[in-house]
Amino acid sequence: MLKSVFVILFYQLIGEFTQKFFEFSIPGPVIGLLLLLFTLLLLKKVEFKVNILTKDLFNSAETLLDYLPLLFIPVGVGVVMHLSFLEDNLVSVLLVIILGTLLTLGITGFIMEKILTKIKSND
């Protein structure tokens, strides 16, 4: 447990450092995510016996992600307490979200289905 907590924090730390140092526009934790993903894929590639090492990491990571919704409460409350910021824009913002989400869902699903059926018919 403690080792995997260290690994996750360490990758985030490297990510944050990289972001600040190179002034990347990608968030530090996302860089940490990418580095951890590359590390895991690399370990698999060289057939490193990762089981004992990664099992603990996988458990910790998945436990943390199980509680992901909980982590949004502190900021979420902030917006409710500061709703006045949205003022006259509340309806417009909701419309942007609703229309944008439904259109994105339709387009993405449509393209994916077209490609998948094309690949299947080519086989």
């Binding site: 996750i8 990758y11 934790p29 996302v30």
Partner: peptide, 12 residues
């Protein structure tokens, strides 16, 4: 914990 949770997304 939001930051570590982002890094943890590497696992799934």
């Amino acid at each position: 914990l939001l930051g570590p949770a982002t890094v943890a997304l590497a696992v799934p």
